[in-house]
């Protein structure tokens, strides 16, 4: 690749960026396979029907045609069985990418995630290598109600042995997914549903992003708004509103929750001395609580205000639109939290 090519940027949807990351990785390494419910669609019917769906959201569209049904496998609705098979396939020498459709379905295969994928390397004293990615759609806002809207960010982050990735932009989606596929550990890759149709500039050349490094989406000197995944878009909107009041907010996409870029975060908050953490998900035992604790430990004397937290309400995600809107973090609530932190 020439430097000139690699610096070229193209506009791409989040969805296309994910698709691109997978097909790029599959072309590069024949051990990469994808499996999951409806990831091709029409399994066994043959062209032109087969593969026409490409996953519930269309992320895996076109892969069946290019890579064939040995490497692109529609599965039965058997979350425990297919997740266990993903773990075994990784131990047997493949680099599988499992599409679990929704994170709310993860409880059906929690043994395979918690007891198998996360622990086998440790329990075998480093013998097991588990290069696998489990993709799941997360988040509310689509009126999908409680059983299709969980984020579960802290649930996965809590488990040693897993890596947890939460892209916010198409560029992050592609770079982080390539890195996740390249990684020799089990990676939980969480895609917020509200992001699939969003667009952004992406480097033409597919380049892996380092796992464990946050991204600064907006420079600012008055306070830091640290965001988990899609919340970064809300954080950016809040920062624009704050700018009109003369408040200069820095916006961060955390990108990965495990490993977490504590060093990077400390460096940012050292500059601004004020922090608001935004996370879609209930507030107890959350990413925001975890970050507040670690930043307090590192920067207690430097903080000019208590750390602000914006989370979802402590309820399952409601169906009714006004209730769901009230449940989720919003730009208005972020602005409010920033005001509290600025005026402390």
């Amino acid at each position: 690749m020439s430097i000139a090519t690699s610096s070229q940027m193209v506009e791409m949807t989040f969805l296309k960026a994910l698709n691109d990351a997978i097909s790029f990785s599959m072309r590069n390494d024949s051990r990469v396979i994808v499996l999951g419910e409806d990831i091709a669609g029409g399994a066994g019917q043959g062209a032109p029907l087969e593969g026409s769906m490409g996953g519930t959201f269309g992320v895996t569209k076109g892969l069946l045609e290019e890579f064939g049904n040995a490497r692109v496998r529609d599965t039965p609705i058997s979350e425990a069985g297919i997740t266990a098979a993903t773990v075994g396939a990784a131990m047997g020498g493949l680099r599988p990418i499992l599409d679990l459709m929704w994170a709310s379905f993860a409880p059906n295969c929690f043994d395979q995630i918690l007891n198998q994928a996360a622990k086998l390397r440790f329990m075998s004293g480093g013998q097991a290598k588990l290069p696998l990615v489990i993709r799941m759609a997360v988040g509310g806002g689509l009126r999908a109600a409680a059983q299709h809207s969980d984020t579960l960010y802290p649930l996965f982050t809590h488990i040693p042995g897993l890596k947890v990735v939460v892209p916010a932009t198409p560029e992050e989606a592609r770079g982080l997914l390539i890195a996740s596929i390249n990684d020799d550990n089990p990676v939980i890759f969480l895609e917020h549903m509200a992001l699939y149709r969003t667009t952004g500039l992406v480097q033409l050349e597919p380049i892996a992003m380092e796992l464990g490094k946050l991204g600064i989406m907006r420079q600012g000197s008055d306070l830091t708004i640290a965001c988990v995944g899609q919340a970064a878009l809300l954080g950016m909107d809040a920062a624009e509103l704050l700018a009109k009041e003369g408040i200069d907010a820095q916006v961060i996409s955390l990108r990965t929750l495990q490993p977490i870029d504590n060093e990077g975060l400390v460096a940012c908050v050292k500059e601004t001395s004020r922090l608001v953490v935004v996370e879609e998900g209930p507030p107890r035992c959350s990413i925001s609580a975890d970050i507040a604790a670690s930043i307090n430990e590192s920067l207690f004397g430097r903080l000019l205000a208590p750390i602000g937290r914006v989370n979802s309400a402590a309820t399952p995600v409601p169906f009714s639109p006004p209730l769901e809107d009230a449940h989720l973090p919003s730009v208005a609530r972020i602005v409010e939290a920033c005001h509290r932190v600025m005026t402390f």
């Binding site: 051990r31 040995a70 075994g88 396939a89 990784a90 131990m91 047997g92 198998q116």
Partner: peptide
Amino acid sequence: NAIVGGGIGIAVGAALAAQTL
């Protein structure tokens, strides 16, 4: 595997690897 049934699906996955490779 100390989870009852924990190894079953893993062997199926290992067989998937063997078949694919």
